[in-house]
Design a protein around this nucleic acid. Structure first.
Lengths: 186, 186
DNA sequence: TGCCGCATGTAAAGCGTTACATGATTTC
DNA sequence: GAAATCATGTAACGCTTTACATGCGGCA
């Protein structure tokens, strides 16, 4: 379970409340890396506090509590991030599963799914390129948080897009296209 | 939950027993797309049988039951694969999470992690290239099962590798390298 | 005969998701 | 004053994982 480390990582950038952490998981973090709802986050913060890895540094208006990482928490985060391959990386990616099973479809159906994948990758690519325009070039330290990740997502989308176009080409050598879908743009 | 569809997809290629299906999840499928143990698979096969999506076609030596997809099961699989973006794609990828949190590390630590990532991507790349050598060029239909996925994995690794090298370059502009790790080869 | 791998299953514990629930503060 | 948002929490259900458990068949 990596949720505690995700929380430590976010709090290492700057202290936040459980509510703010929840919002963070609704953005790119939750979309690409790890998702969690507030009903998982609040109890987990409590456990981390008991273990002495985070602490409440401020209590605000609506009973809000701002958490910050302790030195012990920072050390735990560092240990996890620099640890060996982990070797127990739990993978559950529905999109990748679809790609694995794609060959089970008739070529016309497979083609239309591939065209959709190519289109979605192109859209994601455009989205992240816009993000890069706004944030500018990467800088090190907490300020640059997420820039490396954005570039990573960008290159992932490029790979997916290229793969989908390649796969379409492969399939079209063997079957006439269905012709019911708009072609993917480059 | 995508487990039932993963099972339908595997059975659509050819009928198998629960045991064989379990083995399948220990390979590339479980490593990259979706993991499951036999204690999830056996009950799920029972549920699919009740719903009429699979059926037992043969009973072998050690109480083994060979399952096959029914026409209804094939239709269900097709519906799932060709369905819209699904919009509820659950993402839980520990490796990607590490990349997101990388900026929380000191530059020297971040560099050593990035070098490890680059090395692992290079290793995975070599592995999949070997697979491609064995299986040859892709062909359509159930026979080509997994070839598209292998090419996909290959391109993913290329993207990760390229990203890691790029990230290392970015960080080295701002901090002296730790020098405790072997440099990543290209 | 003994061991290994095949082949399936149950039970308990833990975790995550969904739904339900509450109250305070700000904004209009 | 009403509505939206902030901010946290509990409870129930279902799924996953881990551990435990059993027995047959092939091979040396």
């Amino acid at each position: 379970m990596s949720l505690p480390h995700a929380l430590l990582g976010l709090l290492a950038v700057r202290p936040r409340s459980g509510y703010e952490l929840t919002k963070e998981f609704e953005g790119y973090l939750g979309r690409y890396a790890w998702q969690a709802g507030h009903t998982s986050i609040y109890p987990e913060l409590g456990k981390l506090a008991v273990r002495g890895l985070v602490e409440v540094t401020h209590e605000g208006p609506r009973g809000s509590r701002t958490y910050a990482v302790t030195p012990a928490g920072r050390e735990e985060l560092r240990a996890w991030l620099t640890a060996p391959p982990s070797r127990s990386g739990k993978v559950r990616n529905e999109e990748v599963l679809r790609m694995f099973l794609l060959s089970a479809l008739d070529p016309p159906d497979a083609l239309s799914v591939l065209r959709r994948i190519a289109d979605e990758a192109a859209a994601g690519l455009a989205d992240l390129r816009a993000v890069r325009e706004v944030t500018g070039p990467p800088v090190p330290g907490p300020e640059g948080f997420g820039i490396l990740a954005a570039e990573f997502g960008l290159r992932q989308y490029e790979a997916v897009h290229g793969w989908a176009l390649w796969a379409i080409e492969q399939l079209e050598q063997h079957a006439e296209p269905a012709g019911s879908e708009a072609p993917a743009e480059s």
